[in-house]
Design a protein around this nucleic acid. Structure first.
Lengths: 362, 362
DNA sequence: GAGGTTTGTTGTTGTCTGCAACATATGATG
DNA sequence: CATCATATGTTGCAGACAACAACAAACCTC
């Protein structure tokens, strides 16, 4: 180690300070002292150092109304560290450049031609920003395992080394996460699920995926192929080679990405359509039962088009869940819909990048 | 903080050194220097300190046969830190006192009367050792969530605060883990599964439970009720209130704790018995498929009486698994039996205690 | 305006780890 | 068997760090 001895400790504290500001927004120095458990003088030293390096800005003279010398307010400078996030779908590509503190600095979107490979479009949409950002993260709908997409119904990828392809296209390293996990991280960090210890996010696109996040952190292997839980043993043949997958049933029922327009608007008055909804809701509940028993989450969010499905057809989902999970697992389980809407995956991808950054820093 | 500044760093290094010795056995100082990435002088300072406090012993003059001054061998003193581990079953209680380094210092076992509460027996079997040990951990077959046993088929407990009851019986704090998770930790730490990143241990007792361990660490909520995955929708009523649970099928087939003697020895020549085996193997495979899809392990160990089941009837389990999981999840998945046999849970419980200790120390 | 209160600043102190030089103990070489 | 090369423990020193205490600054209340 060429580094001086206790520099490590300093780095840890610096990272902790930045992370605190990133997560909880602008704060006074006194609040930071409290939150990090460090001495005033230590916070002072770190603050001046980070102010000189341009990562934070201090504004003084904020009278709080209470007694005592007013504390200086510390805020992080978004431009000082940026993370590039991309959400890949079959039909479109979304991009956001997110700054320290969580502010979205740039944002754009492109439609993709059916069947076109998104990788080339990624380098176009990110432009030079990807190279300039500290981290780059791509959210992909499918089963992701350390940079490779093992299976994606939506994109038709099987064992594709997406990280390598992204690096080839843009000239920089990429982290790859699945859309559901990214969205879970997003909802936990910037959404309404901060108090969830074990959060399961269900993402409905052309396929059905799920992501499990423990205490806000993505787990290796937290990417779950909800769509390929078998709900009808010996049932319909699925494109994946299995039989009776939830996704096969979904297709048979005619549900998918355009759920809202096709199904809800068109057929809610129709008894046959309601029956299809109920039956698919049950199938979803059955698959969910197995996942809940196996992973024990305390909160489930219905994202993508599953959001509309759940809002219109919660009862069969709940009752199927009740028939397949133990009371204890159900009692602490909340079922909800995400608050970040369609943005969750993009925001969560960026937050995954920031989490990796803070981990590296310490 | 009343403590001097960099004492924290010192503590971390001390804990790391002890953990290294605990996990990888006696080593030379040079090896420790390499493993911990610290300077020779730092290792020296820590070693003399730990030798004075009685945690390690240094033996010098071990000529290795290679050139250079022979390094002093460092070994931890088992008696200096001990962990009490108890495995609770319906019919018996096992106890082990494990010392630093993993050596079993004491060991005993008692039969329990049917229906008797094990808690009183715990204080008898541990004697004074529980109070004297640094940690005390109890392994319980069932769904464990932070000290409370939410559901245990074997013991008939529902939402029992086992940690509190153990504390009342013995006058000290206890950690509670489920038997399967403990066994998984044991197999990962002292068994043959050290290279598994995500290890799923299946435990067959009177009930069926499973435990998931990531990189050797038990996860909160890693306790899985394998027996209450529903494999026959609308099937037999289970004691838990659900219908078609794997455990209900198991009972119907007449399998259980005494699997080996009753089923294998008696009926392997019998076609009906073989058929029952095959059908239960299939059911197990189905349940397992859902768990594998939801958690994505790279190794599955069949423990308890599932060991014998798997050794005699692997084919239907494997084929059912093949029908319910994606190729990618299966390709990296090894199915095996544990090497620690019946001792896994006890050893793993102790290791869980040591892990908690090392975490506390830093 | 005086006193109390909270917070930033500065100088000091104790502890820590890495580094380099030295001491020590072995094997290899002739 | 003496010498050299090699690997390792030991010691003194320097750089760095965070806590602490005393002080200064800025606010509120009376």
């Amino acid at each position: 180690m060429a580094l001086p001895p206790a520099v490590e400790l300093r780095r840890r504290n610096r990272a902790a300070l930045l992370q605190q500001l990133h997560r909880h927004g602008p704060q006074t120095r006194a609040a930071l002292t409290e939150a990090l458990g460090l001495n005033r003088s230590t916070i002072g030293a770190l603050a001046t150092e980070l102010a000189e390096s341009g990562h934070i800005e201090e504004t003084t003279g904020q009278s709080t109304g209470s007694a005592g010398r007013p504390s200086t307010l510390v805020a992080c400078v978004p431009q000082s560290i940026t993370v590039a996030a991309v959400e890949i779908r079959a039909d479109r590509l979304r991009f956001a450049l997110v700054g320290l503190g969580g502010e979205v600095l740039e944002r754009s979107e492109t439609a993709l031609d059916e069947g076109a490979d998104p990788m080339t479009a990624v380098s176009v949409i990110t432009g030079g920003t990807a190279a300039a950002s500290a981290e780059a993260v791509a959210a992909v709908p499918g089963l992701v395992d350390e940079g490779t997409v093992a299976h994606s119904t939506e994109l038709g990828w099987i064992d594709r080394d997406a990280a390598a392809d992204l690096e080839a296209a843009t000239g920089r390293e990429w982290q790859v996460v699945d859309t559901a996990t990214a969205a879970a991280v997003g909802e936990w960090t910037r959404g309404d699920a901060r108090d969830s210890r074990k959060l399961l996010y269900l993402h409905g696109g052309r396929g059905l995926t799920a992501g499990l996040v423990i205490e806000g952190r993505a787990q290796r292997g937290g990417s779950i192929q909800l769509g390929h839980i078998v709900v009808e043993p010996g049932g319909r043949e699925c494109a994946c080679g299995l039989r009776g997958c939830l996704e096969a049933e979904m297709e048979a029922f005619g549900f998918g990405e355009d759920f809202e327009t096709t199904t809800l608007a068109a057929g809610m008055g129709d008894a046959a359509a309601r029956d299809r909804l109920r039956r698919f809701g049950e199938d979803l509940g059955w698959a969910l039962g197995a996942v809940v028993t196996a992973t024990g989450p305390d909160e489930i969010l219905f994202g993508g088009w599953l959001r509309e499905l759940y809002l219109s057809t919660a009862a069969p989902v709940r009752s199927a869940l009740a028939e397949t999970t133990l009371p204890h697992l159900r009692s602490k389980l909340r079922l909800r819909t995400p608050v970040l809407g369609d943005e969750g995956a993009l925001i969560g991808a960026a937050e995954t990048g920031f989490a990796a950054l803070f981990d590296q820093m310490r």
